[in-house]
């Protein structure tokens, strides 16, 4: 259980792993925006080529990507169906009572489906190849300008990174408390819903108390090490912008130009 890492980071040495988290985050968000330029099959083809290329570059097994789509598949299909039903225009293929599936509806449905899946694939590619802590650093750095608006960016990112740091501990502890209560005769996942809820009390109460204690100890440690909120802190973790990061942004620009050209055609 403790091997489960948040964001499912997969260690590796691919080009994607080596990119600066900021480059990845910016490109990821930018990708979602340029998706809206696409409006015909040529543009979608280009986007697919890009997405598959990125997936290939991550050197992570494709199966992992499909697993990322699975929990969302019903939501996607639901949206696609709505889109198909409520878009009119072109030839009507199916007419069955109030339900009408038109040519445009079908095409739009397919497009929507592609958009969803591509967004999931790209964001999965980012989380698979970036350590959670690097993501936090990236977000911290990108949100930097917000400091001027008195938003406590540093506190937020420190909070995030400490939470990430303690997730394995929390999972370990959950497992331990569960084992201990099972050894005292608790059965999980049995009986009515109310009974099942009841079995959770002996798990969550100790976890809660222990977490509070942990938080207090941690706060003491931080204070003794001289941490005060609002002070100016330097950072040992350094993000380094490399040539390949600049190239990444260029690739994104090229993608945009390609999409616009194909759209104008």
């Amino acid at each position: 259980m403790n091997k489960l890492s948040l964001g499912r980071y997969v260690p590796g040495d691919s080009i994607l792993h080596q990119l600066d988290p900021r480059a990845k985050l910016v490109s990821g968000f930018y990708f979602i925006i340029v998706l809206f330029i696409a409006n015909n099959w040529q543009t979608y083809l280009l986007l697919w080529l890009f997405t598959l290329g990125v997936m290939r570059l991550s050197k992570v097994h494709l199966y992992t990507y499909f697993r990322g789509v699975r929990p969302l598949i019903w939501l996607i299909l639901f949206t696609v169906v709505l889109q198909m039903l409520f878009t009119a225009g072109g030839t009507i293929y199916v007419e069955w009572g109030p339900i009408r599936i038109s040519e445009f509806g079908l095409i739009n449905g397919v497009y929507i489906f592609c958009r969803f899946v591509m967004i999931i694939f790209i964001s999965t590619a980012i989380t698979l190849t970036t350590k959670p802590i690097d993501l936090t650093d990236g977000i911290d750095s990108l949100l930097g300008p917000l400091r001027k608006l008195n938003i406590p960016v540093d506190e937020i990112s420190l909070m995030l990174s400490i939470s990430l740091r303690f997730i394995p501990n929390l999972l370990d502890e959950t497992q331990r408390v569960m084992d201990a209560q099972r050894a005292r005769g608790t059965e999980f996942g049995e009986g009515s819903l109310v009974q099942q809820m009841k079995t959770l009390v002996p798990i969550f109460l100790p976890l809660f108390t222990n977490s509070l204690n942990r938080a207090e100890e941690l706060a003491n440690v931080m204070e003794v090490k001289g941490y005060q909120s609002g002070i100016k802190r330097s950072s040992f973790r350094k993000l380094r912008w490399k040539t390949c990061d600049t190239i990444t942004l260029c690739v994104m620009a090229a993608l945009t130009i390609g999409l616009i050209l194909l759209r104008l055609n």
């Binding site: 502890e173 331990r176 408390v177 050894a183 005769g185 009390v201 100790p206």
Partner: peptide, 20 residues
Amino acid sequence: KNIRKKVGMVFQFPEAQLFA
């Protein structure tokens, strides 16, 4: 269940499991 009743298990730092 029989076995768990028969085998009493005291984990490390067992006070962490107190909840009532």
